[in-house]
Design a protein around this nucleic acid. Structure first.
Length: 707
DNA sequence: GAGTTTGAAACT
DNA sequence: CAGTTTCAAACTC
């Protein structure tokens, strides 16, 4: 999970925003991408689906209570768990701006990047570093799944190197990136890390905690930012969790608007232990920008969910009556919905709201972060026990529930757009709901959405946010009839299964022994994790945008065809209607631009398509005409209104017409006209009769045939 | 519809 | 990373 304010989000390098980019090696922070300020755009990431998985069985709270004088005290960490290793050491360096919280199960590193020179600290795993005058804070929790929080405090308004040991730089952005990590990874601070103090604490492999920082409406302007992170640590195992409520409250200041007051950050969660991490006074910028937020109270005063009001819509909240689960739909980011933030250099194209799913021992729920401009109302989810979900992010990231079994928590970063996390009923604690299934939920009459009150409609979000999926836009993919699978041996839990590979539940398939459903969420989650372990991008669309200058669509891996010439649907490139690229390893490829075979096939395909379209159009037109004729004639039978002319040719009309014709014949005979003339006269009279019948058709009264 | 072909995914 | 096996879709008859 990560919580990042929109203002901050745009200021952070992509590396920071990317959990994977966050340093997980031993390199000094100075060499980190974030430290250099360079960005490394991922060309190979066709879809900016950032769904960081967070194994979040623990809670960290940020509170702001510290007086301005405590600004020098950057961080305070206290761990009350009996297995605490380094809490005190971190606390002693709060003034330097860094924080690391470590416990038997967790490591959290809060690092403040100092702008003041001379303070350079080599960060090592478990190191807590706080530097004065810095402008960035990064909190990184290193655990089995890797978690990190980044607080970025731009230089604006602060005096670089105004004094070491002080954290007086005006923090104009508050950003929490990710929380999670792996036990085998070593945390390294990212950013312009110049810290005056560092501390290293060695911790055991620990379970990660879920940290949620939500923005709240401003409390005052230009007030000091105060953060108190309270974290309860369960160091006795994953299953032994006792509820402990923690509240994170703070003020977030940004630089965009000089007149708006700071925002308050409130974070509450239930923790499994008594560990606490306090981050106190950070910054107090003179100019603050008010970012509209929305607060939703969930289950009591201590549980609040605050939604930022200035982020793009990337999360959909779904409520399914009768279900104890609270669903959150993840949608991919959009590039055109930037919220006009102060940072004109905002190039982040993956700004998505970040849902957070937190499961406690008693309560499991997920609450999305809904963009303020679109979401105005959120149905609160009552909590039966302690639990808190907070999300204020513009990127699509997830926080895993606090339930045990983090080892099977998949890296959801690469799940397909639209994939949803929902609290699970099994020991998984969550369920990865495929986008298709979510769509079904949304279309269900039992799904309630706050669309009427500004909450973006599912359709809107999907249309806006969905990105191509294996060559097809996900919206198209969702609309198209999904092809049922026929899996027999894979239990539909391998990528052999198209349903599974596309992040969909099997439905109306012909598969046997299918586990790709909610009833087997545990197995399914394990399978997802296994796939992600093998290939972190297993669930990413294979057809993504190529590098600059290349085709817009290309296969991420390329095909490996040997015998098909890449001109059959065996070839994934051909199937996706794209040409093979340099990434392909195919032999005898004929799927390239100038290939005559390809052109021939294309022409044939086009011709066939045209024929199909023509046939379809002809059938449609004929059906329409028949239907129209039927609808137009049917009323004549029943009501008499709007009858067609021929419906008036009743027996009486026919007899009258005949009489007219006979009379005309008699007239011709009387005047001794030749037969030809007589016939002509009769025909002319017949014509007049028809005209009268026709003219009478538009009248309600029965036609009168007068000769 | 059964059997074959094919290549991606999974496995070693 | 390469070779092999497994698997299900695509294809052929």
């Amino acid at each position: 999970m990560d919580v990042v304010s929109p203002e901050l989000n745009i200021l952070l390098p992509d590396e920071i925003m990317d959990t994977e980019a966050i340093v997980m090696d031993d390199d000094p922070p100075a060499e980190s991408p974030a430290a250099s300020g360079q960005s490394q755009p991922s060309d190979d990431a066709p879809i900016p689906m950032e769904t960081d998985v967070l194994a979040v069985p623990e809670i960290v709270s940020l509170c702001s209570d510290a007086p301005p004088t405590q600004r020098t005290q950057a961080l305070t960490t206290s761990i009350t768990t009996d297995s605490t290793l380094c809490s005190t050491t971190s606390a002693t360096h709060l003034t330097s701006g860094g924080l690391q919280k470590l416990s038997a199960n967790h490591q959290i590193i809060l690092n403040k990047v100092a702008s003041s020179p001379g303070a350079d600290t080599t960060r090592s795993p478990g190191t807590t570093t706080i530097t004065p005058g810095g402008q960035k804070f990064m909190v990184t929790a290193i655990g089995k799944s890797g978690q990190s929080i980044v607080l970025q405090l731009p230089h604006t308004g602060s005096k670089p190197g105004s004094g070491q040991g002080e954290a007086k730089a005006n923090p104009q952005h508050f950003k929490v990136l990710t929380i999670g990590g792996r036990t085998d990874l070593k945390p390294v601070m990212v950013g312009q890390a110049v810290s005056s103090a560092s501390q290293i604490s060695t911790l055991q492999a620990q379970q990660l905690k879920t940290v949620q920082i939500a923005k709240k409406t401003q409390v005052s302007s230009a007030g000091p930012i105060k953060f108190i992170i309270t974290k309860a640590v369960n160091n006795k195992g994953l299953t032994a969790q006792t509820s402990v409520s923690n509240v994170i409250t703070g003020r977030v200041l940004s630089t965009s608007s000089p007149v708006t007051p700071p925002r308050t950050i409130t974070l509450s969660e239930t923790l499994s232990s008594n560990s606490k991490i306090a981050i106190s006074p950070l910054k107090s910028p003179s100019k603050v920008r008010h970012a509209p937020v929305q607060t939703v109270t969930v289950g009591g005063p201590q549980f609040k969910t605050i939604f930022p009001l200035s982020t793009s819509s990337n999360v959909q909240q779904i409520q399914v009556p009768g279900s104890r689960f609270h669903y959150v739909r993840l949608v991919t980011a959009t590039t055109g919905s930037s919220t006009g933030q102060a940072g004109s250099h905002c190039t982040n194209s993956s700004m998505t709201a970040k849902p957070m799913v937190v499961n406690t021992a008693q309560v499991r729920m997920s609450v999305p972060i809904i963009p303020a401009q679109t979401m105005k109302q959120v149905v609160p989810k009552p909590l039966t026990s302690s639990g808190q979900v907070l999300t204020t992010q513009t990127q699509q990231r997830l926080i895993m529930p606090a339930t045990p079994l983090p080892q099977i928590q998949p890296n959801l970063t690469n799940l397909p757009p639209g994939t949803m996390l929902a609290p699970g009923s099994g020991n998984m604690g969550y369920t990865v709901l495929p986008a298709h299934y979510v769509t079904q939920l949304q279309q269900s009459a039992y799904v309630t959405l706050a669309s009427s009150s500004g909450f973006p409609t599912p359709t809107g979000i999907q249309t806006q946010a969905r990105l191509p999926l294996n060559g097809l836009s996900t919206s198209d993919a969702a609309s198209r009839p999904r092809k049922p699978c026929n899996c027999n041996k894979s239990q539909c839990l391998k990528l052999y299964c198209d349903c599974f590979a596309n992040g969909e539940f099997c439905q109306s398939c012909n598969c046997t022994n299918c586990f790709n459903n909610l009833e087997h969420e545990t197995e399914r989650a394990k399978a997802i994790k296994a796939c992600l372990d093998r290939n972190p991008e297993a669930f990413k669309p294979k057809i993504g945008k190529g590098k600059e200058g290349e085709s817009d669509r290309r296969h991420s891996k390329g095909c490996n065809c040997k015998r098909s010439g890449c001109l059959k649907n065996y070839c994934e490139c051909y199937e996706a209607k794209i040409m093979c690229s340099s990434t392909c390893k195919c032999v005898g490829c004929k799927n390239f631009e100038e290939s005559p075979e390809r052109k021939t096939l294309m022409h044939l395909a086009d011709a066939a398509e045209v024929r199909v379209q023509q046939q379809t159009a002809a059938k449609t037109k004929l059906s329409s005409q028949i239907s129209d004729l039927f609808t137009r004639t049917t009323p004549a039978i029943t009501s008499g209104g709007g009858r067609m002319p021929f419906t008036f040719v009743t027996k009486e009309v026919a007899e009258a017409t005949c009489e007219c014709l006979l009379e005309q014949a008699e007239q011709a005979e009387l005047i001794q006209q030749p037969q030809a003339t007589a016939e002509r006269m009769i025909l002319e009279e017949f014509g007049r009769c028809l005209m009268r019948i026709i003219s009478s058709a538009g009248k309600t009264d029965c036609p009168s045939i007068n000769c």
